[in-house]
Design a protein around this nucleic acid. Structure first.
Lengths: 235, 235
DNA sequence: ACCAAATGTGACAATCTGTGACACGCGTAA
DNA sequence: TTACGCGTGTCACAGATTGTCACATTTGGT
């Protein structure tokens, strides 16, 4: 899923783009920025693959990254879309246990694992903040389990659209959302096929709940109805 | 899911049953034990409900606890079974976001939220360990997303049985496992119905992959085949 | 302007669900 | 100790939702 990234809607600072600095003092923030290197990816480019040695921790500065796991026959489950403020690579041990790829052009800050561990030693409050951020990710994952295990295709799409809207709106909710992911990405995130995603969007359009000005933009016409669907309150 | 709890197969210590003490020095361990109170639940009894105020953090000392989320119409998704060594209630903010109930008779250690926060202040290394434990839970949740979103009923059941076996065996793998959960719990954990769980177990028995001496015990007869199924390597 | 990729649609199949009936086992009461 | 009731588990049959396959249309990039 995507939980809210590790940023807050606070005033800008000298370390905009370094969400890891949030809440740290000036000296610690300087350490963070010094040890970070910047990396850019094109859309579709892989950051790391499942099984690769987990020697880096990354922070999304801009763009969208997809995380996924694969089955041997190619079945793919996307386990999260990450936007700015999110960390990648923190929860791994020796090797990465999923793959990370750019959905859009992406800018990342990279921290070596060794450097990151030293930082944790030197800045004790950082572990508290990472614990909080990882807990946010865990709660989002648990919400997604409910969606994957129990919701119908229509409820899944409704939930997805509302989640995206809640992250794009200035005041928390947008009436029209930009959906940068392809239909096959949405399908692999919701445990559906592309055809079902397409058919379900068409049905919601037919029921005048949404509009699709272009394939990558969705207007939420009947938000109340969408919220009822997402909450599982309709047949 | 259940990730491994916060215990290791190390030597016993004076604080057996207090997995939170693992890795702490004697003074910190004494603090933990002093602030903990013990709580016992009968099978089926609720520990906390979704929406309740999150004022306690719990550690499972013995028994099994199920965590679940509900939809308004009663659809339930179990998001994890926790055994000894696991913490509950850590990832929540103001209110619990899921429900916790005892599957078997359970003994827990309870820490108040306020006391727990003070402990984190006084024992900096604790946050590192909790970060590690929460990361384990997050990885397990991501594995479960792959299962819920992409695996067939048979692959789900095979995965479930192997997971249980890997936690019950002395050397990591048991040939016969105890399944203390009811069929409806297994169903709600795997995103299936009780009938499908029952049919799938019957099919695996018919194919001589497992045996069911009693409904709560499963003998893994053809472990290689089960592992292939769980990994998604068969039709 | 062209082409490839993405999206959308229709027909049919498959997997899982839903329902009803029945069997079995366990716990409690007599 | 025995019998009964209830909860759990199993099974058969029918239905529904989603997947699969093939093809048409649209969109975006060069």
């Amino acid at each position: 899923m995507y939980a809210q990234g590790m940023h807050s809607s606070a005033a800008t600072s000298d370390y905009t783009g370094y969400a890891l600095c949030r809440g740290l003092d000036r000296r610690a923030s300087s350490q963070v920025v010094t040890m970070a290197s910047t990396q850019r990816l094109q859309a579709g480019q892989q950051l790391f693959g499942e099984g690769d040695r987990a020697d880096g921790i990354y922070e999304v500065a801009s763009g969208i990254v997809r995380l996924y796991k694969l089955l041997p026959d190619g079945r793919r489950q996307i386990i999260g879309f990450l936007s700015d403020g999110h960390l990648l690579g923190l929860a791994h041990r020796e090797n990465y246990v999923h793959t990370a790829e750019a959905v859009t052009p992406v800018t990342l800050h990279r921290y070596s694992r060794a450097g990151f561990d030293r930082l944790l030693d030197e800045v004790p409050s950082l572990a508290r903040r990472l614990l909080s951020a990882t807990s946010d990710e865990l709660r989002a994952a648990q919400d997604q389990m409910l969606l994957l295990g129990r919701k119908s295709a229509c409820e899944k799409i409704a939930s997805f659209l509302l989640t995206i809207a809640s992250l794009q709106g200035e005041d928390g909710d947008a009436d029209e959302v930009q959906v940068p992911m392809a239909r096959c990405d949405i399908a692999d995130y919701l445990g559906l096929t592309v055809e079902t995603v397409s058919r379900t969007l068409a049905k919601l359009k037919q029921d005048e709940i949404i509009e699709l000005p272009t394939p990558n933009r969705v207007a939420l016409v009947d938000r109340d109805r969408l919220e009822d669907l997402a909450a599982g309150e309709c047949a």
